[in-house]
Design a protein around this nucleic acid. Structure first.
Length: 447
RNA sequence: CGGGGAGUAGCUCAGCCUGGUAGAGCACCACGUUCGGGACGUGGGGGCCGGAGGUUCGAAUCCUCUCUCCCCGACCA
């Protein structure tokens, strides 16, 4: 993409409503624009990141054996009456009346809708287990939206639902999702710690929240800091091997990690050496629940078992805040100059900066690099603007692409270009060809 | 929902107290000079001063109502 043609409305000054780094940087980098309280338009740059995060989540869900589908955003009130949550959910639910006076709502979550479909279509225990998910916009009419996309009213969520014949099966599904989450967050460059959590209005009795430690988080958390050294990508999980999957969950729940609702001071002090006690804020980026037959019973989601008797299916639900993750990643990875994207979620792989747009030698070298990198499958944002170069560097810092290839007339005389990592780990001057090779090699590595 | 704050140019804000017909910096457009890290000069465009009502010869400014947004708290799959 040529920056001269890209729709990227960056801001030099910070809009006053943005208090925390991720919100400020997302507005300044031209990723989002606020539409109304807690509701945002995703501009091309932000949309690219959103899609990349979504894709990682999708790949890890598929890999764990979940199947993607798509449910509507608008739901009929009736299914919520059946589960008993129409009244329970309260004013957070956005209720809508259509022209025929029918009661509808903008879905805050999808347990009811999917359970209804499932109940209508599945008859036999032979059809279990199943894990079904979708990635869809949700709406919760928060009293006080804040922190940009971290606590929006409209937000993109991946929600998965598992259906099993018995408790043991439900736990197997729970564990698969647990491992899938560990992998997904790790691939995005996040240290997300699974913490024992309260189950809230969804109900249930087995639940973990996946928390990214950050001072701007909204959750108060307590955990063993040893978790930060765990590597969720160290081994390839075999999702057909229940024991192996269970072992991974055991390892990632072996140390103390709880949200404030579950926290017990004495146990924390007993189980965690003082030097490793982390007590602070965290951002919830995902949550997994087991809730048994809470929805399957009232909604009649039953199957006929091997003995010919009907059994209500055992369910769990598993959410990832896809849009919230964009903010969480920035909170976890930025500096004074702007965002520092982890490679796997960066909107582009390389910022190609032409220091002297209009100069034949520079233009030629840039176009050559641009073509080769793209041919090798890299996403390149080519800054070909005929401006003061300083502006380009300011924007490049702000947008925070992992690599920066800088081509100017002075270096070109000796066939030298600058190649830099945004995170500061690499800064070299090499020939244009060497720089291109290095970028292509880096892109072929793990994401 | 309780407490606090703010709505004036795309952004940040001044002007309001003490009423007299709209300002600055940045951004944008044109031209020129520049160009190795957020340039300089000259010229230019851009405003229902959140909305409605009232007071007044006259309202961005005073009064009333209202809408929106933000912050703290409570709430939060």
């Amino acid at each position: 993409m040529r920056l001269s043609q890209f729709y990227l409305p960056t801001l030099k000054e910070t809009p006053k409503e943005a208090e925390i780094a991720s919100h400020r940087l997302m507005l300044r980098a031209g990723m989002i624009r606020q539409s109304s309280a807690g509701i945002y338009t995703w501009l091309p740059l932000g949309h690219r990141v959103l899609r990349r995060i979504e894709q990682i989540v999708r790949e890890e869900q598929d890999r764990a054996g979940a199947q993607e589908m798509l449910m509507p955003t608008i739901q009929p009130a009736d299914v919520w009456r059946k589960s008993g949550r129409y009244d329970d959910y309260g004013p957070e639910m956005l209720r809508i009346i259509d022209r025929h006076e029918r009661e509808l709502l903008y879905g805050p979550t999808n347990e009811e809708l999917l359970t209804e479909v499932f109940a209508a279509t599945v008859r036999s225990y032979r059809d279990l287990p199943k894990m079904l998910y979708h990635i869809q916009w949700k709406f919760r009419d928060e009293v006080r939206p804040r922190f940009g996309v971290m606590r929006g009213r409209e937000f993109l969520m991946k929600d998965c639902y598992s259906f099993d014949l018995d408790y043991e099966g439900a736990v197997r599904s729970y564990n698969k999702m647990f491992v899938s989450y560990l992998r997904a967050f790790a691939r995005m460059g996040l240290k997300a710690i699974p913490m024992e959590a309260a189950t809230g209005p969804i109900g249930g009795d087995l639940s973990h929240e996946f928390i990214v430690l950050a001072p701007t988080g909204e959750s108060e958390v307590f955990c063993d800091s040893e978790f930060l050294s765990f590597d969720a990508l160290a081994q390839e999980p075999d999702y057909d091997d229940d024991a192996a999957i269970s072992a991974i969950r055991d390892r990632f729940t072996s140390l103390y990690a709880r949200t404030d609702e579950k926290h017990v001071g004495e146990e924390f002090e007993q189980q965690v050496p003082e030097a490793r006690r982390y007590q602070g804020r965290g951002i919830e980026v995902g949550q997994v629940f087991y809730f048994g037959t809470k929805y399957s019973k009232p909604m009649g989601a039953e199957v006929v078992g091997p003995d010919g008797k009907s059994i209500a299916v055992e369910m769990g639900s598993y959410g990832i805040g896809v849009s919230r993750l964009v903010g969480a990643i920035i909170e976890a990875s930025h500096d004074d100059g702007g965002i520092i994207w982890p490679d796997a979620v960066a909107p582009f792989d390389v910022a190609l900066i032409n220091l002297r747009a209009g100069d034949d030698a520079c233009d030629d070298a840039c176009v050559r690099a641009y073509g080769k990198l793209r041919a090798a499958g890299l996403d390149v944002l080519y800054d070909d603007r005929d401006d003061r170069p300083g502006v380009k560097f300011a924007d490049a810092d702000l947008i925070g692409l992992p690599w920066r290839l800088i081509i100017g007339p002075r270096g070109l005389k000796e066939d030298k270009v600058e190649l830099k990592r945004r995170d500061g780990t690499v800064a070299v001057e090499v020939s244009l060809e060497a720089a291109i090779d290095r970028l292509i090699t880096a892109a072929g590595g793990p994401d």
